[in-house]
């Protein structure tokens, strides 16, 4: 099954009550945060806490991501070293401005993989785009490394740089979102939408999540577990989509049994990409808690 990143849950890195079992909420990924949620004086404490938890906690099937401190901070190298050694799966680099930033991170990660005895290339990267220059460099960033699996919009700093504020309609983010999705699709990586910070406003969150899905984003970062089921609901396929996908798969299976080279459904030809997409949709339906095996 393909990796899903519908929901990436931020967890403050210096809070043991939250770090200890953030996987229970069923997000696709957990992002242990060493950056904005941790005060400068506690950077060392948060790093050790996340390191220690990763060493001894079974986080199950959830993808383990860390947001390290920015490349120009005094904590960056130590963060990356601790996390690579702790067995992190993905490092999210904040404030990525261009491909050179990813190259620096990649070099450090590669060296650490060797000293820590981890398979080469096992640590994946993710870039958070937080400023106008980063957005303009989106495609270059998205294609800067084989390790890179996703680019993400981080809107709070972005709107400040753009001398505007966030609105419920999100017009100020329209261009950035469009460019990120375009770049991600062109580069073959995932596109992750920004957080929605008003935790009490579930209607507003749903509106924004539907917009992100419609634009083509693969998922969203979230800051509270309550947003996870809402998000998965938005990203779930419709029953009609699921029905159609299952018919495609059934037609392909039947063609295989009968040794047919050409697969058709309702008089139309079906090619490999359509079948792959149908399988992906069935997987997504299953992950969304839909009944996939039901007979029609």
């Amino acid at each position: 099954m393909a990796t899903l990143r519908r929901s990436m849950l931020f967890v403050p890195g210096n809070n043991p009550a939250l770090v200890k079992d953030a996987q229970i909420y069923g997000s696709d990924s957990i992002i242990f945060d060493l950056e904005d949620s941790v005060a400068p004086a506690e950077k060392d404490a948060a790093r050790l806490l996340v390191w220690s938890s990763l060493r001894s906690t079974d986080y199950g099937r959830v993808e383990k991501v860390v947001r390290v401190n920015g490349i120009d901070t005094p904590w960056f190298r130590e963060d990356v070293e601790a996390m690579v050694r702790a067995g992190i799966e993905v490092i999210r680099l904040p404030k990525t401005e261009g491909p050179a930033d990813i190259a620096r991170l990649e070099e450090l990660v590669g060296a650490l993989e060797r000293t820590a005895g981890r398979p080469s290339g096992s640590v994946r990267l993710m870039a958070a785009l937080e400023g106008p220059l980063a957005i303009l460099n989106a495609y270059e960033i998205a294609t800067s490394s084989k390790r890179l699996v996703a680019i993400a919009l981080s809107a709070e700093d972005f709107v400040t740089s753009m001398r505007t504020t966030r609105s419920s309609e999100g017009v100020e983010l329209a261009e950035a979102r469009g460019r990120i999705v375009l770049a991600a699709r062109a580069a073959g990586v995932m596109a992750i939408d920004t957080v929605f910070t008003d935790v009490a406003d579930s209607e507003g969150f749903l509106r924004e999540a539907r917009l992100a899905k419609q634009l083509g984003f693969d998922g969203k970062s979230v800051i509270t577990p309550a947003q996870i089921p809402l998000l998965h609901g938005v990203f779930a396929p419709t029953k009609e989509e699921l029905r159609r996908a299952r018919r495609v798969i059934a037609a392909a299976a039947e063609a295989k049994v009968r040794g047919l080279g050409v697969i058709s459904l309702d008089g139309k030809m079906i090619d490999r990409p359509i079948i792959d997409r149908a399988q992906g949709l069935v997987d997504l339906a299953r992950a969304s808690g839909m009944r996939v095996e039901d007979k029609e």
Partner: peptide, 9 residues
Amino acid sequence: CTIRARVMT
């Protein structure tokens, strides 16, 4: 794991 992290810090 928390005891360990806090003692080390």
